[in-house]
Amino acid sequence: MSHPRRDDLPLPDYDQLPLGSLESRVRSLTSDQVETLLEHEKDHGRRAPATQVLSARLEQLRNGAEPTAGDPSGLRPEQGRAAGGSPVSPRTSAQPYNPPPHGTPDQRGKPKGDRF
């Protein structure tokens, strides 16, 4: 098998895909397409987790698994996340707490004996 070019890979932007979305995205590919990605990974990325995911999927396909419906160029899960922000709102946040400048709330600071 010849070395695949980046433009010929079955998943667009394969090299930029986070490993977390790779497993679900390769389920729609045929065994030839998974082999192409596996060869590309071994030649370029050499990411052990990606190689393991691709090898496992290739083995499943060789043992009779069928590609599932899906669009490999569809929206990636990592693109659907909200950008930044905190789930905490002013309504659910804790009350501000400012400790006293000396001592603790349970043990108040005591004046020195020679000062009044």
Results as ranks from 00 to 15, higher is better:
1 M>E: 07
2 S>Y: 04
2 S>P: 09
4 P>N: 08
4 P>C: 09
4 P>V: 09
5 R>G: 10
5 R>Q: 12
5 R>K: 13
5 R>P: 00
5 R>I: 05
6 R>P: 02
6 R>V: 11
7 D>E: 15
7 D>Q: 14
8 D>I: 01
10 P>D: 05
11 L>K: 05
12 P>M: 06
12 P>E: 14
13 D>A: 13
14 Y>M: 07
16 Q>C: 01
16 Q>G: 03
16 Q>S: 12
17 L>C: 07
17 L>Y: 03
18 P>T: 07
19 L>A: 06
19 L>F: 00
20 G>P: 02
21 S>P: 06
22 L>R: 04
24 S>Q: 10
25 R>C: 02
26 V>E: 06
26 V>I: 14
27 R>C: 12
27 R>M: 14
27 R>I: 03
28 S>C: 14
29 L>D: 02
31 S>N: 13
31 S>Y: 05
33 Q>S: 12
34 V>A: 08
34 V>R: 09
36 T>F: 02
36 T>H: 03
42 K>T: 14
45 G>R: 11
46 R>D: 15
46 R>M: 12
48 A>F: 10
48 A>Q: 12
50 A>L: 04
50 A>Y: 00
55 S>V: 00
56 A>M: 08
57 R>E: 15
58 L>D: 03
59 E>V: 10
60 Q>M: 13
60 Q>F: 03
61 L>Y: 13
64 G>H: 05
64 G>T: 03
65 A>R: 12
66 E>W: 01
66 E>Y: 00
66 E>D: 09
67 P>L: 10
67 P>D: 11
68 T>L: 14
69 A>H: 08
71 D>H: 07
72 P>Q: 02
72 P>R: 04
73 S>P: 07
73 S>Q: 14
73 S>M: 11
74 G>L: 06
75 L>Y: 00
75 L>Q: 11
75 L>I: 10
76 R>G: 08
76 R>I: 01
77 P>L: 08
77 P>M: 07
78 E>H: 10
78 E>D: 10
80 G>M: 11
80 G>D: 05
81 R>D: 00
82 A>P: 03
82 A>D: 05
82 A>Y: 01
84 G>P: 01
88 V>W: 10
88 V>D: 06
91 R>W: 06
91 R>H: 09
92 T>N: 13
92 T>Q: 11
93 S>A: 13
93 S>G: 04
96 P>N: 03
96 P>H: 01
96 P>W: 01
98 N>G: 02
100 P>H: 07
100 P>D: 13
101 P>H: 13
104 T>A: 01
104 T>N: 01
105 P>A: 10
105 P>R: 11
106 D>N: 11
106 D>K: 09
106 D>G: 12
106 D>I: 01
107 Q>N: 10
107 Q>Y: 07
109 G>N: 11
111 P>D: 03
111 P>R: 15
111 P>T: 04
112 K>Q: 15
114 D>T: 11
115 R>V: 15
115 R>K: 15
116 F>T: 14
